[in-house]
């Protein structure tokens, strides 16, 4: 029986898809059987980040509507044979997702895998609430910035009211992954500090992913950052996050890349 994880944030562009791909790949690298599911119907991205965009035949909508079998739609990763992708449809809209259809597909995935990671669309509408509905664990992605933190807070409120677990009075694990964090800028007061974010959101911290060019590089190559640059700071942050998800106790550190002299002379800008 798989654990269902939803990666959600409310706000767009904070790193949900990157996080989904990185967590999925890191879990698979650790030998787990993983499926990543793109719930962002109409604006699919996960296939690109996973480098599978040219292998999509059937998608989540086809499976939900019964036009294709789950096995026909699942795309096995070429690098990690325990990693699979269920892509979203780019041409349909979220209305095509029915409650019953999604429940059935999630049920089937639950039988097949150890972990199912659902990449939620941004926003708080139907697509987002459907992605979170069957989750056992929620990973809330936030940037150290007020609007992102407030939107995450909104999403946590929805997680506590709209998920099946919340409705049944069961516990839904919620974790925070803080992405695009820059310790220097936080120190100078240019972005929120980790403590500030945790104080506002009051959920446990799963990882702090530093701002890094490795993330963009990996995205453009169509490879999760934990596969593409496993020793980079963001990859180490995600690998630690996965160990924590699996129940290990790992000391919380903010990984950093050693900067070259050139890097110090020409500080990186936030992409």
């Amino acid at each position: 029986m798989a654990k269902i994880i939803v990666v959600t944030s409310g706000k767009g562009g904070v790193g949900k898809t990157t996080t989904t791909a990185a967590l999925g790949a890191a879990l698979a690298q650790a030998g787990q059987n993983v499926c990543v599911v793109d719930f962002d119907v109409g604006l699919r991205n996960l296939d690109l980040i996973m480098g599978a965009e040219r292998r999509v035949v059937y998608d989540l909508i086809n499976v939900v509507q019964g036009d294709a079998k789950l096995n026909q739609a699942l795309i096995r990763d070429k690098r990690l044979d325990t990693l699979a992708l269920l892509p979203a449809s780019q041409t349909r809209d979220k209305e095509a997702l029915t409650d019953e259809g999604v429940a059935r597909v999630i049920g089937e995935l639950r039988e097949k895998f150890d972990w199912v990671i659902c990449d939620s669309p941004a926003g708080i509408e139907r697509g987002a609430t459907l992605a979170m509905r069957h989750a056992d664990i929620a990973v809330v992605v936030a940037n150290p910035e007020v609007s992102s933190v407030r939107d995450s807070d909104r999403i946590i409120g929805l997680l506590d009211s709209k998920t099946e677990r919340a409705k049944n009075g069961e516990h839904l694990e919620k974790h925070l992954i803080l992405t695009r964090y820059d310790p220097g800028r936080a120190e100078r007061g240019e972005m929120l500090k980790i403590e500030d974010v945790l104080e506002i959101l009051s959920i446990p911290l799963l990882a702090v992913v530093p701002e890094s060019e490795e993330v963009l590089k990996a995205s453009n190559l169509g490879s999760p950052v934990t596969l593409n640059a496993p020793h980079s700071a963001p990859a180490r942050a995600y690998i630690d996050a996965v160990r924590r998800l699996k129940g290990e106790t790992v000391e919380m550190i903010v990984p950093s890349d050693k900067r070259s002299i050139l890097g110090k002379l020409f500080p990186r800008r936030a992409a």
Partner: peptide, 25 residues
């Protein structure tokens, strides 16, 4: 529990006590 952004409590009679925080929004 804390009151999250977007949540609203309307209690026309009597006091409201929140054991946690009331978020922005």
């Amino acid at each position: 529990r804390p009151l999250r952004s977007g949540q609203s409590v309307y209690h026309p009679e009597g006091d409201v006590t929140v054991m946690g925080s009331v978020a922005s929004g």
